[in-house]
Design a protein around this nucleic acid. Structure first.
Lengths: 254, 254
DNA sequence: TACGCGCATTGGACTAGACCAATTTACACT
DNA sequence: AGTGTAAATTGGTCTAGTCCAATGCGCGTA
């Protein structure tokens, strides 16, 4: 068509400054909403010409849509409408149980197990003296053989001797905790934040450096209130939505 | 100094492709980590010259650091090390209670109340026929007079007649539910995802269009399992971390 | 001293284009 | 018809620069 971006949609928003790339984004959104997942979208250079803008501006709009899980891009191939996001439950259940609850075949790839000296933050979280030895366990969690999350877990080396060896043959960390050490995690504090994917995590999760991620940090305690583990998990923000079930704590007051 | 980016740090990561902007980001991170909040960081053009790269590349690194809450930028003024993020609890408590628990003086600004026809998604969520009337309540929640979140709430118009009038003088929606309609929300399903800030939300939250956000959607039910409200809240991803407390549901099995 | 105007500084948005990498397509040759 | 290679297509990274908007500083003036 070749109509100018200025003619796109109606700007009902704040008086002046809606960036041009955002008009492009809304325009693309209208197109995407009408197409089923997998449908191809016009290539960058075509959009650039059609909308009379620079490639940079088009790319900024596309990048946001990719980050929000609306589009998928494949170099050399094209841009396509993405599948809807997948729900990921927040619960005390083990990874395998959570995955199963979401209808995935869970899998784990052990990336590295090493024993290192804890930095101040980790030591404090695990109730150890600064510099104490901790096991650092890095794993790639998969669902239906597709990468799902990268987890880095820290536990006290003194409390869990020979854990590295045991990890190499085990699937579930919680099972090892219980079987070999009699430790049962009973509650946890989870924090959720956004971050940009570092190159290593991006590669493992098959996305791009800088892609928006959901970072879930879990601080787990056993029944006596002792800290058990400190885990930091990276999930692709364009693929997953976290779901939490909340119940009113007390009957009522007032 | 004028040292080239190629000399920065050591690339132990994946074989080849670490983008140049990421080297800049790591370099800046080292600087930031050693400075207290509020400290100024060198302006873009200086970094561009020092690191022998383009302004675009420097800006990409800065943008990610801003999105992760490590830096704050003020046009005409400069770039500064940011305050640490603030924890925001996920619980069934009302906004005021949650804010108080986080040490904020809670406030609410009613942006708009209107009665509209529900789209299919909203109707389904509230258990209504498609096109049924719903009240749409848009509010800006504040903590210590600073914008905290933008909330858009939908409730059935048939179930809550004259709610718009009552809202205008009320602070707490839950209080109105209980006092005037005898409805007490008891549990909820919350979903958390990432998104880029639209211009309107960005303006209200005093950030930039496209800034990474945490979007919290809450589907609330009363004691008989009836849906009460559907709320979508936008929080600045660079400022807040969501915190959830989890407890193992069952005593144990196996 | 206090005020106000103008300029320099700084971040924000956008452009046009170069070069690279992955993929797909087209075509020549067997 | 099948196969392999070259070319075209498409997304990814980076550069160099323009113009604008908000802020803050300094200087001249009242």
């Amino acid at each position: 068509m070749g109509r100018n971006i200025a003619a796109l949609g109606t700007v009902t928003q704040p008086p002046g400054n809606v960036p041009k790339y955002y008009l492009v984004k809304r325009h693309l959104l209208e197109i995407i909403d009408a197409l089923p997942p997998g449908s191809p979208v016009a290539p960058e250079r075509v959009l650039t010409a059609e909308l009379r803008t620079s490639r940079t501006t088009v790319r900024q709009a596309l990048a946001e849509l990719v980050g929000e899980g609306r589009l998928v891009r494949r170099q050399g191939s094209g841009t396509f409408v993405a599948e809807p996001k997948t729900a990921w439950p927040l619960s005390m259940a083990s990874f395998s149980e959570q995955a199963a609850a979401s209808g995935f075949q869970p899998g784990t790839r052990l990336l590295s197990v090493e024993t290192v000296s804890a930095d101040d933050d980790i030591a404090r979280r695990l109730g150890l003296a600064p510099g104490a030895n901790v096991h650092r366990i890095e794993r790639l969690r998969t669902g239906d053989d597709r990468p799902l999350a990268v987890e880095v877990c820290f536990v006290s080396a003194a409390r869990f001797p020979r854990l590295p060896d045991r990890m190499r043959s085990a699937q579930s960390l919680y099972e090892v905790f219980e079987r070999h050490y009699g430790v049962v995690p009973v509650d946890a504090e989870e924090t959720i934040e956004t971050a940009a994917a570092p190159p290593a995590e991006a590669a493992l999760l098959e996305t791009d450096t800088g892609a928006p991620m959901l970072v879930l940090s879990r601080h787990t305690f056993d029944d006596s209130g002792e800290p058990v583990e400190w885990v930091r998990s990276w999930y692709r923000g364009d693929r997953y939505v976290f779901v939490a079930r909340l119940t009113r704590p007390r009957p009522r007051r007032r």
